[in-house]
């Protein structure tokens, strides 16, 4: 009976994992999709200013205010990359881990998200030949590392990685609200 439950739980977990693996082919990844313009609109704002350097340094300051560390900057092409590392613990996952532990009679300890790195890349560039109007585009993404776990006698080592783009519009609105305050300019979307 116990073995049957265990086998059932393992099969269930395995089928769940197998369902996740769908490989997107590289050809599709080099094509614009239906969502591309929507993402672009969310990530981009325009500013009426000539001073690209000022816009870039204000962006760096805003990212610092948000707790980011600037890791890379190239002024000639208006590029900034910043990251911050935080804990990724969530109660929901711990509760799920507990129930999986009980239901599998102590055989299964699911790995939970432990640590995350949130990163932002930002590009500022002039969009007209006279360079009186600048475009700022920022993208947020994160990498999450899982802790260790155990499935029956098999130890699951920590460090499994998961990466995702952050597409919450509120995050982008907040960033641009702070940036416009920093440069005393009203941003606009086309």
């Amino acid at each position: 009976m116990r073995r049957a439950i265990l086998v059932g739980a393992c099969l269930l977990l395995w089928s769940q994992l197998a369902g996740c693996v769908t490989h997107t082919q590289p050809v599709e990844l080099f094509q614009l999709t239906e969502e591309s313009p929507r993402h672009k609109a969310m990530q981009t704002r325009f500013f009426e200013t000539k001073d690209e350097a000022e816009l870039l340094s204000a962006s760096a300051a805003v990212l610092q205010d948000l707790g980011f560390q600037v890791e890379e900057s190239v002024q000639d092409v208006g590029f900034l990359r910043a990251t911050k590392e935080r804990s990724a613990r969530e109660y929901g996952q711990d509760i799920g881990r507990f129930f999986a532990f009980v239901l599998s009679l102590g055989k299964l300890i699911m790995p939970v998200d432990l640590h995350q790195k949130i990163a932002a890349t930002l590009i500022a560039r002039p969009i007209n030949p006279e360079a009186t109007r600048q475009e700022v585009r920022i993208m947020f993404y994160r990498v999450v590392w899982k802790g260790d776990g155990q499935a029956d006698r098999q130890y699951i080592p920590p460090g499994q990685q998961k990466m995702e783009m952050l597409r919450d519009p509120v995050m982008y609105q907040q960033f641009f609200a702070k940036l416009s305050k920093a440069v005393f300019l009203e941003p606009f979307a086309l």
Binding site: L29, F30, Q31, L32, S36, H39, K40, Q43, E72, V74, V77, F79, R81, A119, T121, I123, R137, M139, Y141, M165
Partner: peptide, 10 residues
């Protein structure tokens, strides 16, 4: 960026 790439280095 339009294609959804993250610029890592320039």
């Amino acid at each position: 960026q339009d294609l959804g790439f993250i610029i890592e280095r320039a």
